[in-house]
Design a protein around this nucleic acid. Sequence first.
RNA 1: GUGAUUGUAGCUCAGUUGGUUAGAGCGUCUGGUUGUGGUCCAGAAAGUCGCGGGUUCGAAUCCCGUCUUUCACCCCA
Length: 413
Amino acid sequence: MASNEFQSLQGMSDIQAPEIYLWRMMEERARSVFNSYSYEELRTPVLEKLSVFQRSLGDTTDVVKKEMYSFKPSKHELAMRPEGTAGTIRHLAGRGEEGLNARVFYIGPMFRYERPQAGRKRQFHQVGVEATGEPNPLADAEAIALQKSLLDAWGLTGSKIQVSTRGEPSDRKPVADGLRAALQPHLNDLCEDCQRRIDENVLRVIDCKNESCQKIVDQIPSAIEFMSDASRAYLDQVIQALENMGIDVTVNPKLIRGLDYYVHTVWEISHSALGAQDALAGGGRYEIALGKKAIPGVGFAVGFERAIMALEACGITGGKFAPEGGLWLVSLGDAALAENMKLAAQLRAKGIRCGMELANKSMKAQMRKANRSGAAKVIIRGDDEIEKGIVTVKDMAEGSQEELNLEDLIRDA
RNA sequence: GUGAUUGUAGCUCAGUUGGUUAGAGCGUCUGGUUGUGGUCCAGAAAGUCGCGGGUUCGAAUCCCGUCUUUCACCCCA
């Protein structure tokens, strides 16, 4: 089978039935949930100028540094979007005042050149939202509530919401300095990676998976303790607002989120079914400057591939959402086949799911197909029926049959 | 980028220390006498054993390369 020519690219897969029905369910319900929170859909291009991502995600992040599909077809260096926020903000920034108070969502493919792994593809799919506006703990809480509504709508259970804060930009230095000072005495006990991280990105030491590093991290003060009173108060207000809405979250000061643009609230939703990459969704408050003015907002993204892994662990699979019901037309003889083509067109015009065999096959074969299609009823027509202007209708579940006038069938269908 | 791992019919997999026409189950198709499915029975079609080299009288089985799968690190959704 699969010769190389028929293989899709590494980390990029074809999504087909029955899994596709799960995707469709998720997309449809996502749109419905977003509508209930009065968010509008925004579709931005997959390609943007490379600078759009460099400026919003940060030059130093791995995503920008080494995971982007970029190329230069003409004047500008372009890149395929590795996430949805940058393009969305690029769009909103162009809408002036209106863009500073917008609520939009997106659904679509994202691209990152990484080694594929559980729940990680090179072309992967996200649904996300962005709500722009000045920092407001209630907005952050609402975004988390919206995300929870989304997962609930999909029927996903067993996920965990963890919340933390990055503080304000002015907190960054005190936090980094404070953590470095606290870690310094333990330097030799940290893993190799972490010894490097202390200088490069000290926050990453906090969520190192190495057990011995974790022991040390547990001993030192959390990043939040080095932040200003205002930053801590902001987080408290978010937690309070979530409590008021009855949303259960865990405050985890060790939660680190990588992108540079985050300020204040950050959060992550994880699920035990996912393996090492257990985050199926993440979000946070950000401030993104593309031009002179920074755009403040809050948003989140959910990974479809990972959400699907979690859903399947909950026993929710695509097959459950496969289309079924409707009719199947069985034709005996060429005359009936021609007549059924006409009938099918009439039924389909009424929006009825309607299948039929277009080749001259045995009745047995046609019935088998009808059964497989999930049709509720089968319309059987041969020379007899054509002559009398009737159809034989068989109920597939009960096995019962009756004869109907053709006109009655078309009218009542 | 680092370290492992996978690749045999549409799908899930067997294939013994390299040896004649590569197997099974599921699925598909066709039948089981006049126009009836989901069960049962019978039969059939379907693989240049991921791709390319090499070793050998002979390779799905050994070696090298390459693509791909899966997993962990890294990073992230």
